[in-house]
């Protein structure tokens, strides 16, 4: 959206109008200062964010890359320059690849159902409900609960031998699931914790976007005889496209950086005796803080960053294509 422009927009000029020729838009600032003010001040207004980002975001990012090419002890600090040695040792380690597979598996098991469920919940909340705020706040509750508390509750649900879920399975005559020993089962359990926490949050974001959709579109569709499901699929989902992309990308980033839930899934927080649910961030933590090897930990961080960028781009392309096809 542009700021209000009282002057009529210039008709499509045949000759490319030089920027300096444009009349001063504001009454106060005229001449050179006014033009300078007009051109520079928007950047000044957003500068604080970028300054902050440079200090707290970009600098650590670049510095991590610097640490990754050195022999670096947590306490003794910088050592020799070793080039790509840290990367080679990480990439040739089975632990890294196992952690990568675990991360992707947990990410898929959590993000996909999460976004779908969030969409469904948002769709339901978009109807006229009594005490709407109550229900909307209700879906956000799991997000407010501290992750540690969530982990405590779920560790009782998913305990291998005396857990609630296995007890229930037992009463209906099913075999207990080995939630910690079995690799896939542990991923499902962790994904459940993640979904518990984030589904409501994503639902609210999608709901906010849904409420911005003009109501007359629905009315017109209803008059044309479209069912409510049809209206949801053909109007709501396509118009949610930008928000969907946002939700998918944030949940991708969050999903690949998942740490709290696997860390607190058992009493040791290292991802299982066989690394069944050791994610990349847990692996990074083990390298950096248990083995005090900041060099290799940073190498993992850089690789994780690249992975997120790649998956994020793929995500973006796919979700854009899908959404634009639907809107056609």
């Amino acid at each position: 959206m542009t700021v209000t422009t009282p002057t009529p927009a210039p008709a499509p000029a045949p000759a490319p109008a030089p920027v300096a020729d444009r009349p001063g838009r504001r009454g106060g600032g005229t001449g050179r200062w006014g033009r300078w003010d007009h051109r520079v001040s928007p950047y000044l207004y957003i500068a604080p964010f970028f300054l902050l980002f440079f200090v707290t975001g970009l600098f650590p990012l670049v510095y991590t890359g610097w640490v990754a090419v050195h022999d670096w002890d947590q306490i003794m600090g910088q050592g020799e320059f070793v080039g790509a040695e840290n990367f080679v040792s990480v990439l040739t380690s089975d632990d890294f690849w196992r952690a990568l597979v675990n991360t992707v598996s947990i990410f898929v098991l959590s993000s996909v159902p999460q976004v779908l469920a969030a969409l469904a919940i948002a769709g339901l909340l978009d109807h006229h409900l009594r005490a709407a705020t109550f229900w909307r706040m209700g879906v956000l509750l799991p997000y407010v609960v501290a992750p540690v508390a969530v982990a405590l509750i779920f560790s009782n649900l998913f305990a291998d031998r005396f857990g609630l879920i296995n007890a229930l399975l037992d009463t209906v005559g099913m075999e207990p699931v080995r939630w910690h020993s079995d690799r896939l089962a542990s991923h499902v359990a962790i994904a459940t914790m993640v979904n518990f926490r984030w589904t409501g949050y994503n639902a609210l974001i999608l709901l906010a976007a849904m409420q911005a959709i003009p109501r007359d579109l629905y009315e017109a569709a209803a008059i044309d005889g479209a069912s409510s499901l049809r209206r949801f699929v053909s109007i709501t989902v396509p118009l949610l496209r930008p928000t969907m992309i946002f939700v998918i990308i944030t949940s991708t980033i969050g999903g690949l950086q998942i740490f709290d839930e696997p860390k607190m899934y058992d009493q040791f927080g290292r991802g299982g005796a066989d690394g069944q649910w050791q994610t990349l961030t847990l692996y990074l933590y083990e390298l950096g803080w248990t083995r005090a090897d900041f060099g290799r930990a940073s190498a993992v961080a850089v690789l994780l960053f690249l992975l997120i960028v790649v998956i994020g781009v793929v995500n973006f392309v796919i979700s854009r294509r899908i959404a634009s096809e639907e809107s056609r």
């Binding site: 909307r136 956000l140 501290a146 992750p147 409420q211």
Partner: peptide, 24 residues
């Protein structure tokens, strides 16, 4: 009416974000 509601929602979401940030 609906704009106000939307703003309320946005504020809630923002407040929650801030709360979450304090947690860690």
């Amino acid at each position: 009416h609906s704009t106000r509601r939307r703003m309320l929602l946005a504020t809630t979401a923002a407040a929650t974000l801030a709360l979450g940030a304090c947690g860690g």
